[in-house]
Design a protein around this nucleic acid. Sequence first.
DNA 1: TCAGGTGCTGCAACCGTTTGCAATTGGCAT
DNA 2: ATGCCAATTGCAAACGGTTGCAGCACCTGA
Lengths: 368, 368
Amino acid sequence: MTRRKRKPASSMAEVARSAGVSLSTVSRALSGSPLISEATRRRVRKAAEKLDYQVDAAGSSLRTGLTRTIGVVIPLSHAANQSFSDPFFLEILGALADELSVCGYNMLLTKVTVDPADWMETIARGRRADGIIVVGQSLHHESLNRMAGTGFPMVVWGEQLAGQRYVTVGSDNEAGGYDATAHLLSQSCRRIAFLGDVAAPEVTARREGYLRALRAGGIARMPQLEIAVRFGSDTAYHAVAALLDAGVEFDGVVACSDVFAINAMRALAERDIKVPAEVAIVGFDDIPFAAFTTPPLTTIRQNCKSGARLLVDNLLRLLRGQASATMVIPAELVVRSSSLREHYRALPSIRGPRRSESDTRGKKVRSA
Amino acid sequence: MTRRKRKPASSMAEVARSAGVSLSTVSRALSGSPLISEATRRRVRKAAEKLDYQVDAAGSSLRTGLTRTIGVVIPLSHAANQSFSDPFFLEILGALADELSVCGYNMLLTKVTVDPADWMETIARGRRADGIIVVGQSLHHESLNRMAGTGFPMVVWGEQLAGQRYVTVGSDNEAGGYDATAHLLSQSCRRIAFLGDVAAPEVTARREGYLRALRAGGIARMPQLEIAVRFGSDTAYHAVAALLDAGVEFDGVVACSDVFAINAMRALAERDIKVPAEVAIVGFDDIPFAAFTTPPLTTIRQNCKSGARLLVDNLLRLLRGQASATMVIPAELVVRSSSLREHYRALPSIRGPRRSESDTRGKKVRSA
DNA sequence: TCAGGTGCTGCAACCGTTTGCAATTGGCAT
DNA sequence: ATGCCAATTGCAAACGGTTGCAGCACCTGA
C-alpha cells in the first residue's frame, strides 16, 4: 500500500474506487450522462447502491448552482398563526407537496408573519432554493412586485392584479363571487351580506363579482352588509352576531371562506335563526368539512389540485428560462343545503324536509 | 489595472474588497466570531448589507457539514393524501414551523406514502438536513427503528413503544383514552364504542386507556363496538352508519380523532339520533373546529404547541450531541356539550336546554 | 532597547461535485 | 503497418465558504 494516495475524503471517491473508475465517471454515470457506456453505468450504480451512496447536496449545489428545492411561503396577514389554521391552506399545501415531489423537488416551507420580502431575499440570495411559490398575496402585493424585479423565479397563488410583475395562478374569484351571489338571488334572497376583508386582493375580486351580481339583479348595494372579516380569526362569528344583535336584516350571506360561513352559521344557530329558511349561506373553498356541516354548506370550490399543478408547472418553466403565464382557474359552485330555500319559501313556517345524504355530495353547476 | 488579479468569483470576495479586508475576516465577522474587533465587524456588516449579501448556503454547508435545515416527514398510512387533510396535522405543522424558525432552522417538508425510510435515507445521506422530525409513527415503527440505528438525528411525534430505539414526544394517549371513557361512564354511558385503527400505536394506547376505564367501571369489553377506522378517510361515517343499520346498540362513542367524531355525529344526525341525549361523544385532538360543531364537541386536547417545542428541543439537543429523552405530554379532557347527558337523563324524552356559548370555550378537567 | 504578549487579520488548504478538455482505447479503412 | 475517427474515460480546475495556523502590529514591562 503506497503512501502517495491519501485517504479519499469524499464518499464519491469510495464509489469510484469500488467500481474501479474515476470520480468523473461516477458523477457522470449517476447523473445519467450519455457519455458513459451502459456497462460502466451499471457497475457504478451497483457500487453506489452497495455503499448506500447518495450524492451530497451541498457539493452538488455548490458546483451546479442548483438546489432541487423550491421554497413555499405562506404569508400571514396579521393574525399570527391563526390564518395558518384555515384548512384550505392544508389542502393546497398537500397538493403542492405532491406536485413538487412528483417533479423531483424538495419543499422548503415557511410561514412568515411580517414582510415576506425579507425572507425571500434570504432564500434567494443565500441560494437555498431554486424558486419560490407564494401562497396568497395577502397584503404584500407591493413587496412581491419588488421581489419579482430581482428576477428570482417566483410564482404566486392569488388574484391577478393590475400592474403585477409576477406570475399568478388563482381561482376566478370574481366569477366565484358572482356565482355565489347569483345563486342566492335565484333563491330569492334580497339582502345579501358579504363577509371578507377587501384588503386581500382575492377578496376584492370576490366582492367585485358580488357587486356585479347585485347590479344584474337590480339590487342596490348595501354597505352596512359588506363586512371586513380577517382570515383565520373567528371575527366572522362576532361580525354576524353583531349584525344580528344590531337588528340589521339580511336573508343571505356570501362568505369568503368556508370557515367564515361555518362561523356565521353558528351565530345564526345560537339565535335560532334557520339556515337556509331565514338566511341562506354560500361559502368559499369547499374544504372537506363543508359537506358535513349542518346543514351541508353550499360553497365555491377552488381546485387545489390543478392550482398546485399550474403553480409548479409555471415555476419549473421559469427555471428552465421558458415563458410562463398568469392563469385563472374556474371556480365551481357546489350546491348543498345551506342555500336552498325553495321549500322553505313555499311553506315558510314549516321545517323543510330532511335532506338526504346525496346532498352532501354536492353538485357541479359551473365548470367552465 | 493589472492582469494578475482575476475577477473575484465569489460574492463574499466583493464584500471583502468593499470593506477592505480579507475573505476570512468577512466570514468571521458575519458568523459572529469573537476574533473580530467590533470596528471591523461593523464595517463588514455595512458592506454586506450594501451589497445585499447573503452567505451562500451550499458553500457554507459544504465546508461545515451543516445545513441549518430540519426535515419534517409526514408518513401517511395508506389512504394517500387523505390523512394529510386532518386539521390536526396543520396545527402541529404550524407549531413546528414556528418553533424551527425561532431556532433559526429551515423546514424541509415531505409527505411520504410508502416507507419513510427510503426518503429519510436520501435526506440523511444526501445531507439535505441536519436532522429529521417524523410526525406520527403510523405503521412504520420498524422502519423508524432501523433508521434510528444509523445514528442520524431523529425525533418522532407519537407513542412510546417497547423496544423503540428512537426518541418520541407525544401525548399521553393511554390517559387520554381513559379520561374520555371515564367521562362517558360518568355520564352513565354503558355501551361505549371505540373508533380507531389499532394498527397505529397512538390508537393502541388510547384503546388501552379505554379498556382500563371499562374495567374500572366494571363493564365488560364488547369487541363489536371496537371499530378499526383509518385516519383521513370518512370510514368513520360509514362505520357508525353500519353499526346503526345493523341495530347494534351503543350510548357513547370514543373517537380517536375529532374528524371521526364529527363523522359519527353526522351518521347519527341523519338517523335522528340525538347527541348527547341518546349517544354521547368524545373526540380527540381538539381541532379548532371542535368548539363549533353542533353540539360542540367534547374532546381530548393535544397540546401541539408544547409538543412542537419539545420535538425541536430534543432534536437540537441531539444535534449538539447532548442526551435527549422520550417525553409524554399530558392530554386534557375538554368538556363541551356533545357528552353532557345529565339533563337528558333526568328528562329522557324532552330536549335539553340550549347550551349557551360559554360551553364552546371548554373546560380543563385534567392537566396533570 | 528588546523579549514576550496580546489582539487582529490573512494565507491557503480543504469540503464533495461537476465539467471542459485532453488522453486513451479500439476499430476500421487504407 | 499506419493514420484517423468515434467512443469512453480521466485530469484538474472551479464552485463559495470556513478555519488552523502563521504573521503582523502594537503594547507592556524589564
